[in-house]
Simulated scan of single mutants.
Amino acid sequence: MSTTPAISVCIPAYDMGGAGGDYLGHSFDRLARQSFKDFEVVISDQSDGPGVAEACAAYADRLTIRLVAYREGKRQASANTNNAMRHARGRILKVLFQDDFLCDDSALQQVLEAFQDRGCKWVLTGSAVTRDGETLERPMVPRWQDRIRWGFNTISSPSVLALEAGHDIWFDENLQWLMDGDMYHSCHQAFGAPVILPDTLVANRIHAGQVSAGVSRKLRRQEVVYTARKGGLSHAKGDLRAFLYQYLKALG
């Protein structure tokens, strides 16, 4: 691999209830199968146990892995993902959450080819969900819509995102539940429409310990209000309606 890899796979990692190392090892196994090889894996580690470090050590001879300790930052996905992106050296930043994985061995090759078009600044890929790490369900092709920042997610998790490095675009560290929609909204404002790869390249793992399963109504209300204050409400009726729908839904 070159000193400046073509792609940096940016993975925010933490203990994940003791399963973090196992999920990461499974993801590493799929990364090692990729047909495209000029990539590094950047792990931003907020774990307190040894699982993440052990998984990295186990694959050190098969992948170029850089493990970066990040225990002083906010203990949340947005801050941890940003830290991985900050330490990346690649020309393309490919976000991949620890419990998700690339389910197609040509995934990185397809992402790279999309960026060969000079007009391409960000890419979204097709995805599916998995409960057992093998069987894929509910395939989803990303679709842009203006309500994305309000949590009407027709794109999927941040694991489907890749963007060109060198732009001052980051996940908002004040957000957890809406971090993905806010990021997509920021990319759309900066770059215009994304390039969409419709093939199912990413598997999003469903399990009891995932962050989205523990999002409270209070947090949802706070983030909806924060999003309104941050970006304002457009004059379009759909924007106001989306805000009110999510806020009232969070009231219960």
Rank of each mutant, 00 (worst) to 15 (best):
Q109F: 06
Y226F: 15
A13M: 09
Y70K: 06
R149T: 06
A107C: 11
V129L: 09
G73H: 03
T154N: 10
E113D: 15
Q222C: 08
Q46C: 13
L63W: 09
V41T: 15
I65L: 10
E72W: 01
Q116W: 03
T135D: 09
L175F: 12
A128T: 04
V141K: 11
P139G: 07
E54Q: 14
G133K: 03
D105W: 04
E223G: 01
R217S: 13
L24G: 04
A228Y: 06
P12Y: 02
T4V: 13
R66I: 01
T4Y: 03
V95K: 04
S27T: 13
D117F: 02
E72N: 10
D15K: 10
I148W: 01
L197Q: 04
Q222V: 02
T81C: 13
G209P: 00
D99W: 01
G133F: 03
T64Q: 10
A55E: 06
G126E: 04
N204C: 12
D104Y: 02
G126F: 05
G21K: 04
I148V: 15
Q145E: 13
G126T: 05
Y70G: 13
E134R: 14
D132A: 05
T64W: 03
G209L: 11
P158N: 14
L248V: 12
I11V: 15
G238H: 02
D146L: 08
H185C: 05
A77V: 14
L93W: 10
N204H: 15
N80T: 15
G126V: 04
G126I: 05
S47K: 08
D105I: 09
L24M: 08
R131M: 11
A13K: 02
N80W: 00
I206A: 01
V9H: 11
L201I: 10
L244K: 09
L63Q: 09
Y14W: 15
G133Y: 03
F101N: 02
L197D: 03
N174M: 11
G17C: 09
T125H: 04
D48K: 13
E54T: 08
A236K: 12
T227S: 07
C56M: 08
T3P: 07
H87Q: 14
F191W: 09
Y23I: 03
N204F: 01
R118K: 12
R118L: 07
E113K: 13
A193F: 00
S47V: 10
M16Y: 14
P50I: 08
S27K: 01
V42P: 01
D29M: 07
N153T: 09
D199W: 00
K218T: 14
H188I: 05
A55D: 07
A79P: 01
P198H: 06
D61F: 06
D61S: 15
Y247W: 15
D132E: 05
W122F: 14
E223A: 02
R75H: 15
F97P: 00
D29E: 14
L108G: 02
E72A: 10
A53C: 13
E173L: 07
A114V: 02
D117S: 12
Q189S: 07
N80L: 13
M85T: 06
P12T: 02
I169E: 08
H185F: 15
R86L: 14
P142R: 08
A208H: 11
C187F: 12
A69I: 04
